Computed example of a mutant assay.
Amino acid sequence: MTNLYFVRHAHSTYTPDELGRPLSERGMTDAKRMTRLLQMEEIDHVVSSPFKRAMQTVEGIANELGKDIEIIDGFKERLLSDRPVADFNEAIKKVWSNFDFSLDGGESNNIAQERGVAATIQVLDKYNGQNVAIGTHGNIMVLIMNYFDPQYDVHFWEQLAMPDIYKLTFHEKHLIEVIRIDENNI
C-alpha cells in the first residue's frame, strides 16, 4: 500500500502574489500542529506545490526527516481566473457545476483535475509502498480526490479546515481508503 497524506495549507496572509504568499502567524502555529500529526505517520518523503504557503505547511516534517521538499508543479492550486472574481463562492459553484467551464484565463475542473491526477500518479509510481506528505491546496486536492471517488465534491471542499490532512491509501493506482488525520485519530 502507498499512503499519500494530502496536506491542505494553513492560513496565509493574502497578497496578490499567489506563488510567494506566506503563512500568517496563525498559519505558522497550525503548521507546527500539522508537523506533530505527520510525525505519528512514519512519513518517508515530502513533496509540495511550488506555492510558498503549501511548502511552509510541510517544511516542519521535511526538517524532522532531514529531507528536502520535492516540488511538483501539478499540486499547485487551480487557477480560477486570471483576474480577481467578484464573488469567489459563486465562481467556485460555477466551475464545480460544469467540469468543462472555465472563467476568463482560468482552468476548468477537468483541466485542473487532469494536472493534479498526473502529479498524483507520478508520486504513486515513484514512491510505491511508501508514505508521502504532499503540501497542496483545497480545490486541487478535492479535484484529485474526486477523480478517484466522486463523493468528494464541492460540498466536501466547503467543509475542509485550513489546514487539513487527508490520508489516501492506494493499492497500486486504486484508492482503497480515505481517512482524515486529526488529533482525534492519532
Rank of each mutant, 00 (worst) to 15 (best):
F51A: 07
P16R: 00
L4Y: 07
Y14F: 14
L37G: 06
E90V: 15
V95C: 00
L103Q: 06
L103K: 01
I69G: 08
A86T: 12
N110A: 06
G105H: 07
K67A: 09
D82P: 09
T13Q: 14
V47M: 10
S48G: 05
N110R: 11
Q39R: 15
R21C: 07
A31W: 01
K93F: 11
E64F: 13
P50V: 02
F6I: 03
I43Q: 13
I43E: 13
K94D: 09
P50D: 06
L23M: 04
T29W: 03
P22A: 01
N110C: 10
E90D: 15
N89F: 04
N63G: 14
K93S: 13
Y5T: 05
G74R: 08
E41A: 00
F99Q: 13
K76E: 01
R78S: 02
N63M: 12
E70V: 09
V7I: 05
W96Q: 01
A31G: 04
R53G: 07
D30A: 07
Y5D: 11
S97E: 13
I61A: 08
K93V: 09
E18I: 01
F51Q: 03
D73Y: 08
R53E: 03
R53H: 12
F99D: 15
H45A: 02
Q56L: 12
E64P: 11
D87I: 05
R33W: 06
Q113P: 05
R33Q: 13
I71N: 12
